[in-house]
Design a protein around this nucleic acid. Structure first.
Length: 1019
RNA sequence: GCUGAAGUGGUGGAAUUGGUAGACACGUUGGACUUAAAAUCCAAUGUCCUUUGGGACGUACGGGUUCAAGUCCCGUCUUCAGUACCA
């Protein structure tokens, strides 16, 4: 009987599905354990071998925990709202729900054939109305809440209204819009309702505000900061500009401190916590108020160095600062206006790219130093950002490098307030223990004490306050897209109204096109049926809007992170129609015990989800305020991309040519001159012998990496054949050349097999000397200036480096794929995929099979196990148990290989050994384990078997092969009984003839004996 | 620049509290089986020297601690990831 993996895997996948083997119960006497994967976005491309890495790890852990007697919740679902489905809909007119459904089918098929132990009865989809009903519900709760700094939690907006009507807002310590005026109870009660609503909006945890947003014209939507990478959109790489729009925002800034503190209570990786800390960006300092001379207004600045206040010699405002126009003197007006205009024109990206140029303009205005009363000139400069702090700084050139550079550039005074520090070349930015000087009452103090005193003095003069600032901005929550959650919001007089929870969900309306309207409204503006009837409490046709009982609905939709910010709670009770999850379910499962996913979500999903969880906790609807106890980031599996390079060579001084011992000419490093290699350089050789990324050899010369300026990427190759010839795939009739797409004449391209024949590209000159292939792709002539090579990078369809798990599974089986992905290396590490290595684990499975099944069937007997058998088994149990608990899955695969190799060599057939061995392997290779388990005569699934217990007594040794070292170098081993004393070991070693041979008559100075470990002879 | 992680054979990677560096695989080479190929099995495989026995050198680089360092300490370099005029 052969190991027929395809048959076995199909059989057991069917069995698990039919028996609902992995269904988790919400009631159990067993302890609970919740293992969660970050749910996938079902893209059209399907899964590649990199995707399941984390799923395999979590699956092994989930299966292990089941064997260990836990009630395991291991669900899976889909983050199924999102841009790609919508982009596809725009191109094809296909409804995103239909393509999403089709993609989910593919994902499900691919996930099923991996043998994952997901409880599919709990599947969630963020795009399903049953699910997004509750996303909308959470939105309403956020709208109905404000953040009370005194109680340090979110509270119902009703409590705020109550306070306002009794005592106004002067005593309220809330996280809210900074521009709210102070009002009394009488004033509040006299405000018209619209005015009250407008004021309340500025306290709510989700609010409408005109904000400057990141607008992506190509995508037609706003993006959150974490959706922008290097100034372009994360998806698609389109440019992003700043634009003012009225948008929904989430007041995540209210939770900044708690999000920061909470990090100390959870077991997440340090790298991930650190990036969240940076993103939150807490800085402790003070705000300082400077009075303007000859003006009523004041300038407020934020500083982390109040101790350096006597070093202030000017102030700088961001060009966008609202005071700029008020305070600029007539004499400076034209210069200032020109500068403001110029900075407004520069994109964010240009400003980021260009940090060296120092620019700025004097406004003509002066502020008064709060202590010295000296006049301080007020400048504007684009090194000050409008969006951080107050958009203004007090410049201390001796203590801040940017202020220093600015002062030097514009010849502004640089007073030194540090004792014994030379500031003639650069600013002194260390906080350390330097003594402050020339600073009145701060003289002689160090940073810490001086800061404290300065803040006290400022507060006493009412000229400032100790303050903590956070970089974390409120998150924009509106997207001008179709394929997202609709808001449960309609508008009366431009003021947002929530639809009552009992009328949810508000389902996405049908539209005939997925583009913005001609008037620039979001796609929902195209819906015929998109108005709210407040008497019938239902969605009705637009044309009925009368602004009396029927009102317009919100046209924006929610961003991608809305649905993913709470899904882990839904899995606990996914079919509940009256609550997002019952309190029984929430209190039973509480939080995710182990969460596995990619580190790219560090400052997006993982921060927003923590925020919502804390809010839901404040609301009293979830029992814990951190949703995931432990989190592991799986590393990415990288692809092997093929490239065609153009080789450039620089030769400087031909008189320096070397001849090496093989007679090759060699150009030394310092002999380089700028010459781009053309084939005529090699005219005498006609053809190159070899070109690699690092060297070129011709029949009589070798050019090495130092004098090659290679690796100008010419194009991405579809693959490289075994002759090293790159085949360039024509995907969308574009070839990528020198980073620029150059359109190739499609008529000259053999599009049928999508492999470009170089011969047909002769119209393009650069290819005249390329490697030519015939119609079968076989090399017929080797050219000169091109070479092919491989580089490791992220797996992606567009890089032609994707390996499809379907192919691996049909060739080797899911168990092989699972084992191999684990065997590749540590879970958290980035590692390249290499298909050829899979034969190793596949052979292992075959050997495992042969250990149980021979040509005549089952080999397993009731024979008593030998000591060696037991030793092999128990050292395997020990190692594998430790490995799983440490998430070191790669080493347990090696341990299995060693165990099977040893047991095979020992000829072990004993059931006492082979039965527990299967349970050890079952989490990793569940199909083969189930099959052999059944062959051993079991009726119940192996998943119900208990994990074997390690028994140390089987590993007790009586002898040890001691490594005998001389001066720390191991020379030979000597087998000695373990119960010898130090002295006995030393005596045994010293009388050994090998020792005597090593010593050659010398007398050792010292002999170190560590019983059970090593002997080292020094001499 | 800052923060975090990491540098070990041709490759992926192993190495408890400092105690036999290179486990386990891949690849390569040689051999067996076969008409042949595939599959399978066996052997060798860090580098260099050596007739064998064996020896020298080896965990990015330079120092140090120690009987003993991939592991600990100091300094340097490189790579990857994140972040960036954050006052």
């Amino acid at each position: 009987m052969m190991y027929n993996f395809n048959e076995i895997e199909a059989k057991w996948q069917k069995y698990w599905a039919e028996q609902q083997t992995f269904k988790a119960e919400n009631n159990s006497t067993k302890p609970k354990y919740y293992v969660l994967d970050m749910f996938p976005y079902p893209s059209g491309a399907g899964l590649h071998v990199g995707h399941p890495l984390g799923y395999i790890a979590s699956d092994i852990y989930a299966r292990f925990k089941r064997h260990k007697g836990f009630n395991v919740l291991h669900p899976q679902g889909y983050d199924s709202f999102g841009l790609p489905a919508e982009q596809y809909a725009i191109q094809t007119g296909q409804h995103p729900a239909i393509t999403t459904e089709a993609n989910i089918k593919t994902y499900r098929r691919q996930l099923d054939q991996m043998g994952f132990s997901f409880d599919w009865s709990r599947e969630v989809r963020t795009s399903s109305p049953d699910y997004y009903k509750w996303t909308q519900w959470i939105f309403i709760q956020l709208f109905n809440s404000w953040y009370n700094n005194s109680s340090n939690k979110a509270e119902s907006i009703d409590t705020l209204v109550d306070v306002f009507s009794k005592e106004g807002n002067s005593n309220v310590d809330a996280v809210c819009d900074a521009a709210i005026p102070v009002f009394s109870a009488d004033e509040w009660n006299s405000f018209p309702s619209d005015r009250q609503q407008q004021l309340l909006l500025q306290y709510r945890l989700t609010y409408l505000a005109e904000t400057e947003v990141n607008w992506c014209p190509e995508l037609g939507t706003v993006l959150a900061n974490d959706e922008i990478v290097n100034g372009v959109s994360e998806r698609g790489g389109y440019p992003v500009i700043r634009k003012k729009m009225t948008q929904w925002s989430m007041r995540i800034s209210a939770y900044a401190e708690r999000l920061l503190q909470g990090l100390d209570t959870i077991d997440w990786t340090d790298a991930l916590k650190e990036s969240q800390r940076n993103w939150i960006g807490k800085s402790v300092g003070a705000t300082v108020v400077f009075d303007l001379i000859d003006h009523d207004s004041t300038i407020e600045v934020f500083t982390t160095r109040p101790d350096t206040i006597f070093g202030v010699s000017f102030m700088t405002l961001a060009p966008e600062h609202e005071l700029v126009h008020q305070i600029t003197t007539p004499a400076q007006k034209s210069l200032v206006d020109a500068y403001v205009l110029a900075t407004a024109k520069r994109s964010e990206r240009e400003r980021m790219a260009d940090v060296k140029t120092i620019s700025g303009v004097f406004t003509g205005a002066y502020a008064e130093h709060p202590f010295t009363k000296k006049a301080v000139p007020v400048w504007i400069g684009d090194y000050v950002l409008a969006g951080y702090g107050t958009g203004a700084v007090m410049a201390v050139p001796c203590g801040d490098q940017r202020d220093y550079d600015f002062a030097k550039h514009f010849n502004i005074e640089i007073p030194n307030i540090f004792e014994g520090i030379d500031i003639s070349n650069e600013a002194f930015t260390d906080k350390g223990t330097t003594i402050i000087a020339n600073s009145d009452f701060l003289n002689g103090l160090e940073y810490k004490e001086a800061s404290k005193r300065a803040i006290e003095a400022l507060e006493a003069k009412n000229h400032g306050l100790g303050k903590i600032n956070y970089r974390l901005r409120d998150a924009v929550f509106s997207r001008q897209r179709y394929w997202g959650e609709p808001f449960p919001v309609y508008y009366i007089n431009g003021l947002p109204q929530m639809i009552a929870a009992e009328h949810l969900p508000i389902c996405l309306p049908e539209v005939e096109k997925y583009l913005p309207t001609e008037e620039g409204e979001p796609p929902l503006g195209r819906a015929e049926v998109w108005a709210w009837d407040t008497t019938l409490n239902t969605v009705v046709e637009n044309h009925k809007i009368d602004h009396k009982t029927i009102f317009p609905l919100e046209l924006n939709t929610m961003p991608g992170w809305a649905g993913s910010s709470w899904y882990f709670n839904r899995y606990m009770d996914p079919h509940n129609t009256t609550e997002f999850a019952s309190s029984e379910a929430l209190n039973y499962w509480k939080e995710v015990d182990l969460y596995i996913g990619g580190s790219e979500h560090a400052t997006g999903h993982l921060l927003y989800a923590r925020f919502w969880q804390k809010f839901l906790f404040d609301l009293g609807v979830v029992p814990v305020d951190e949703f995931a106890k432990k989190l592991i980031n799986q590393g990415m599996i990288l692809g092997n991309s093929a490239f065609v390079y153009r080789v450039n060579l620089k030769i400087i001084n031909k008189s320096k040519i070397d001849i090496d011992d093989k007679g090759n000419q060699r150009y030394p490093l310092d002999a380089l001159e700028e010459v781009t290699v053309r084939s005529n350089v090699f005219a005498s050789n006609k053809f190159l012998e070899s070109i690699t990324k690092n060297s070129i050899s011709t029949s009589n010369s070798v050019f090495t990496a130092q004098n090659l300026e290679i690796s100008e990427v010419l194009m991405r190759a579809f693959k490289i054949d075994d002759k090293g010839i790159g085949l360039v795939k024509d995907h969308s009739h574009l070839l990528w050349i020198s980073y620029d797409p150059i359109r190739i004449d499609v008529n000259n391209v053999d599009a049928s097999d999508r492999i470009i024949d170089f011969k047909k590209l002769q119209s393009w000159k650069e290819f005249d000397n390329a490697n030519f292939l015939d119609d079968q792709g076989v090399l017929i002539k080797e050219g000169g200036e091109f070479t092919t090579g491989r580089e490791v990078e992220k797996m992606s369809k567009s890089k032609y480096n994707v390996v499809n798990p379907d192919d691996i599974i049909s060739d080797y089986g899911a168990d092989s794929l699972r084992l191999y992905e684990m065997f590749l290396g540590p879970l958290e590490q980035y590692k390249p995929w290499n298909t050829s290595g899979i034969t190793g684990v596949h052979n292992f499975l075959k050997k495992l099979w042969k250990l149980y099944i021979g040509q005549d069937g089952l080999k397993v007997t009731e024979a008593e196990p030998s000591k060696d058998h037991l030793k092999t088994l128990h050292k395997t149990i020990k190692k594998v148990t430790e490995d799983i608990e440490n998430f070191s899955f790669n080493t347990s695969v090696s341990t299995f290989m060693i165990a099977v190799n040893e047991l095979t060599a020992q000829g072990c057939t004993s059931k006492t050994i082979l039965e527990p061995l299967l349970v050890l392997i079952a989490p990793y290779a569940p199909h083969i384990a189930e099959e052999l388990w059944e062959q051993l005569g079991h009726i119940e699934s192996i998943t119900t078997a208990e994990f074997p217990e390690f028994d140390a007594s089987h590993l007790v040794e009586s002898v040890k092969a001691y490594p005998i070292s001389f001066n720390g170098k191991m020379r030979f081993t000597l087998e000695l009984p373990l119960d010898l004393s130090k002295e006995e070991i030393e005596a045994a070693v010293m009388r050994n003839e090998k020792t005597l041979a090593q010593l050659e008559g010398r007398v050792p100075k010292k002999v170190i004996v560590v019983p059970g470990k090593i002997v080292n002879i020094v001499g």
